[in-house]
């Protein structure tokens, strides 16, 4: 095996295909989008070079700022609601409850189901007339709380955040569960001998040792929220009146419906930069933690 690793030609030979694919489907499109984002272009014919005007316009575009705000709401609720919930589930299940595997599977099911199916499911839950949610509220005498969940400007964003959080709780739970399972049993045994309760074990042993996984989960949760598209598109199409518009849905509308390729590309580049920035911040946060 040593021989193979020292053979530069072999390394190049084997890495070349994936390098080419990565370049073709990720790097080249990013570079092209960056170029398009400097154009005023309708997608046909020739674009007109306008420099950074698209970016300047972005920051005075109410719809865009609103969509960024909404994406950030997705990210924040994902970090502060979804992840703690996943962590709690992972801790409880890995503690060795009955039917451990069964629960892991059940919580993971929403991740496997197609987003469109989940969207349809939640649309039925939210349906103003026969939706389970309103029927339940009416049945327990809280009929005045029944709302047009997806149809009113006040609730549409919240109503689309919930399914997204719900869908991926199982995903983060599985990551953390696997992480906990890979922690050496000796550590837990030692804690047990010292008389640490489950809560204390979790607080002082499991969670600190889980830090690398938490970083991964946090990154996925934040970047995933900033890129969220499918569920929002199925549930509300970003409406009503942009109340639940996120950057990706706005971008698709800008490019493919309004035919503003340049302006839409600028949004795409903004999302890429935003994701990298937050990824870098998360990395930094965890690094300084380690020093302490």
């Amino acid at each position: 095996m040593e021989k193979v690793w020292s053979n530069k030609k072999a390394i190049i030979f084997f890495l070349f295909p994936s390098f080419v694919i990565l370049t073709l489907i990720i790097i080249v499109p990013i570079i092209m989008s960056s170029y398009y984002s400097l154009l005023k272009w309708d997608g046909f014919g020739k674009g007109e070079f306008i420099g950074l005007k698209n970016y300047i316009d972005l920051f005075s575009d109410k719809a865009f700022l609103m969509s960024v705000k909404n994406s950030l709401i997705f990210a924040v609720s994902s970090v502060f609601i979804q992840l703690p919930f996943s962590l709690l589930l992972a801790l409880v299940i890995s503690k060795g409850v009955k039917f451990e595997r069964f629960f892991v599977t059940v919580f993971f099911i929403p991740v496997i189901i197609s987003t469109v199916v989940i969207g349809q499911l939640w649309m039925k839950i939210y349906h103003p007339e026969y939706g389970v949610l309103n029927l339940f509220l009416r049945a327990v005498g809280l009929g005045n709380l029944a709302k047009e969940w997806l149809g009113s400007k006040e609730t549409a964003l919240g109503a689309s955040v919930v399914p997204v959080l719900w869908q991926y709780i199982g995903y983060h739970m599985l990551l953390m569960y696997a992480g906990i399972k890979s922690i050496s049993a000796d550590v837990f045994e030692a804690a047990k001998i010292d008389g640490a309760s489950w809560l204390k074990t979790s607080r002082y042993i499991t969670i600190p040792l889980l830090r690398p996984i938490l970083k991964v989960s946090l990154t996925f949760a934040v970047v995933g929220s900033l890129k969220v598209f499918d569920l929002v598109y199925v549930l509300t199409r970003g409406g009503p009146a942009r109340a639940s518009e996120v950057t990706s849905t706005l971008m698709v509308e800008t490019i493919f419906k309004s035919n503003k390729y340049g302006y839409g590309s600028a949004m795409a580049i903004f999302v890429i930069i935003e994701c990298f920035l937050l990824y870098w911040l998360i990395g930094k946060m965890f690094k300084t933690d380690e020093v302490v």
Partner: peptide
């Protein structure tokens, strides 16, 4: 128009 129509798709 129906209540909640703003949240309904054409099929619904």
């Amino acid at each position: 128009f129906p209540e909640g129509a703003a949240g309904l798709s054409k099929d619904e």
